[in-house]
Amino acid sequence: MKMVYLLGTTLLVLLMVLSQLEKINKNQKKDKVVLIVFSVFGWLIAILLIFFPDVPGPSELIDVLYKPLGKLLE
């Protein structure tokens, strides 16, 4: 089942990148790089979440930083 998710996500990301790459002007190299970097970043997070759904997320990170202040409201 997880393999199906993986394949589906990969296909989706590929379609997204290919459909958008066409629209970017040839001279805009930076735009292309940014598009690919964000897509690959999304793909990596998607894989991470498919195989390890319980991995600590951004909210946990913020919770660690702001815990002393947050305690005031409990």
Partner: peptide, 29 residues
């Protein structure tokens, strides 16, 4: 993001960022 990285157009990154937002939605709690 487009202003931060000085891109020429913001439309090209709309879809990848939408994809990331779905993931952040799953990931946030």
């Amino acid at each position: 993001i487009a202003q931060w990285l000085k891109l020429s157009d913001f439309r090209s990154i709309v879809l990848p960022i939408g994809f990331l937002l779905v993931l952040f939605g799953v990931w946030s709690a």
